[in-house]
């Protein structure tokens, strides 16, 4: 499903059985079985086989199952794509720089879907992690199969010759550009990982920034980061109340068969409606019963 919630995407190193076996336990919106950076060159083959068996046997529960393959330019790409089965929801494509990069992967997916009889569309989440990728982000985001653009800050910083700082000022333009491109193309924008596993406060701050910038989710390199990320993406009570009021106004307009939706005497346009729907979805994902909001 292209527009499912992706507040959190948890990376699971592809050659680590201890983490893979619990992949479904941490309630990440998506899990990424990683064949790329988390796997050393010598272990690419056994990681691929381990991921293949994990896809057969491990229950990833409600998490969307994504595979991060090695770049199409590497010798590993073709074999990596071989692990795709009907248990896979999507591909995370590293270092996406042009629409050709994504189109090539899409045509491989066309073949695999036919060959393996997979009756649904496997999505692609291109990772933008270079200057060129940022500039081409909109063209990439518009392609079929693309469900979201992800940002990869580590490689991007290296590519532009910037220094990685805790405040992330050097990433400001790329983040904004990716959110803008993604939203213009009608797909999600997903922020980079927060690399300091033990710095909960730093993770919270960075996730809050990402959310305020318009990102729909953040990637996690450790399961303990999931709770904080979800917490940040949980709407406040005020936001939920406002969204509920909008939904009520829609309902009333429908009942009156009125084409115009109004709330407190002001007209509501489509983006506001969409936003309200999303707030309700996020609240429900966080386990909040929006029909019975508790009193303060």
């Amino acid at each position: 499903m292209k527009d499912r919630l992706r507040r959190s995407r948890l990376f699971l190193p592809g050659n680590n059985p201890k983490i893979l076996q619990d992949g479904g336990v941490f309630e990440a919106d998506s899990v990424i079985l990683d064949l790329e950076d988390a796997v050393s060159i010598d272990s690419k083959d056994e990681a691929r086989i381990l991921v293949k068996w994990a896809l057969r046997d491990v229950d990833f529960r409600n998490s969307e199952v994504l595979i991060r393959v090695n770049s199409p330019e590497t010798e590993f790409f073709e074999a990596d794509m071989g692990v795709i089965s009907d248990r896979v929801d999507g591909i995370v494509l590293p270092k996406a720089e042009s629409k050709e990069d994504v189109k090539n992967v899409a045509s491989v997916l066309d073949e695999i879907e036919t060959e393996k009889g997979i009756g649904r569309e496997i999505i692609i989440i291109p990772t933008i992690e270079s200057a060129l990728g940022v500039l081409n982000a909109y063209d990439i985001a518009r392609l079929p199969r693309v469900a979201a653009l992800a940002f990869g800050a580590e490689d991007f910083t290296k590519d532009i010759g910037a220094e990685r700082t805790p405040e992330g000022t050097e990433l400001w333009y790329a983040r904004s550009a990716i959110v803008t491109a993604a939203k213009a193309a009608g797909v999600q924008a997903l922020d980079t990982v927060y690399p300091s596993v033990h710095d909960d406060e730093g993770l919270r701050r960075e996730t809050e920034t990402a959310r305020r910038m318009g990102f729909d989710g953040k990637s996690a390199i450790h399961p303990n980061q999931i709770g904080i990320i979800h917490d940040v993406f949980t709407p406040s009570r005020e936001e939920i109340k406002k969204a509920l009021a909008v939904m009520q106004a829609i309902k009333e307009a429908e009942e009156k068969k009125s084409g115009v939706i109004a709330l407190n005497g002001r007209m509501i346009d489509r983006p506001v409606v969409e936003r309200a729907k999303k707030v309700i979805r996020l609240a429900e994902a966080a386990g909040i019963d929006t029909e019975h909001l508790p009193e303060e």
């Binding site: 619990d22 336990v25 399961p223 303990n224």
Partner: peptide, 9 residues
Amino acid sequence: SPARLKIAR
């Protein structure tokens, strides 16, 4: 261990 922390939570 993330699994054990989850148990505690």
